[in-house]
């Protein structure tokens, strides 16, 4: 693919701009800024990845992953306004998702410890962890707000904060896991996932691409479960005092 083709692809954005103008959505400015940022960010990351792949040294890989975790936690933090110490909690949850899932992949020798495998797959783990933690955080807040009456009745009966939040935790974890479970059910029927599509376009046999895609999807299921559970358990506790009182 030539650079000219990429530039010509900008015309696709023009379609969205025309719709925005026609329907008075006032999204033209955001579309332009978004497109510009996508260009700059992707070109920058392209150069950074090229550099890291050529160096092939573990400290670069670790720094890169650290940066991705920080950016993901910062982004998910916006969903947790009003929750105390939300940033360290997100940092821990997303890091744990990455460490455990990547640890399993490396430990089971599913992928080798090479930048070209570890960094893109970490990107998928961290990205999914970010979405799962934002969804969980949002849901914990909303559930506690809507279940105040139920929680007070349970506390009044002598429940601990954990017992009184049991329904909240269940609903929040479910809401984080459902999109992953749904995509497991529909993959290959409704959609061909990004990684598989990329490999096929890159000339890899569809059967090999399927193997990678299966590993990635199972890995995402593990990441989402780990991250959502850590976020849910930390987040609910921020709504209670040490004396099991709802704040």
């Amino acid at each position: 693919m030539s650079y000219l083709s990429v530039i010509l692809a900008l015309s696709f954005v023009l379609v969205a701009v025309v719709i925005s103008v026609r329907e008075n959505l006032e999204l033209e400015k955001d579309l332009m800024i978004g497109t510009f940022r996508a260009f700059v960010q992707l070109i920058a990351i392209g150069f950074i990845l090229k550099f890291i792949f050529e160096m092939e040294k573990w400290p670069y890989i670790v720094v890169m992953i650290g940066f991705m975790v920080l950016a993901a936690a910062r982004n998910a933090e916006k969903r947790g306004q009003g929750v105390k110490n939300v940033f360290p909690m997100l940092l821990l949850a997303i890091s744990m998702g990455e460490i455990l899932t990547m640890g399993m992949m490396l430990g089971l020798k599913i992928i080798p410890f090479q930048a070209q495998y570890v960094i893109p797959i970490s990107g998928m783990i961290i990205g999914n962890g970010m979405v799962a933690s934002a969804l969980t955080l949002n849901r914990v807040k909303a559930e506690i707000e809507s279940r105040r009456e139920e929680i007070l009745v349970l506390l009044g009966l002598g429940a601990t904060a954990r017992q009184a939040s049991s329904s909240t935790l269940q609903a929040s974890l479910k809401s984080a896991l459902i999109p992953t479970v749904d995509s497991l059910k529909t993959v290959g029927i409704v959609q061909l996932p990004g990684m598989m599509t990329g490999l096929i376009i890159g000339g890899v046999s569809p059967l090999v691409a399927v193997k990678y895609q299966l590993v990635v999807m199972l890995m995402i299921t593990s990441t989402v479960s780990i991250t959502a559970m850590i976020v849910a358990y930390f987040a609910y506790s921020k709504f209670f005092t040490e004396r099991h009182q709802l704040i």
């Binding site: 009456e149 007070l152 009745v153 506390l155 009044g156 009966l157 002598g158 601990t160």
Partner: peptide
């Protein structure tokens, strides 16, 4: 102990809540 107090001192609210 908060939990012991709450089991010893029951509370019933204005609006009944059924699980």
């Amino acid at each position: 102990n908060v939990l012991e107090v709450r089991r010893k001192v029951g509370i019933v609210f204005q609006k009944p809540f059924m699980f």
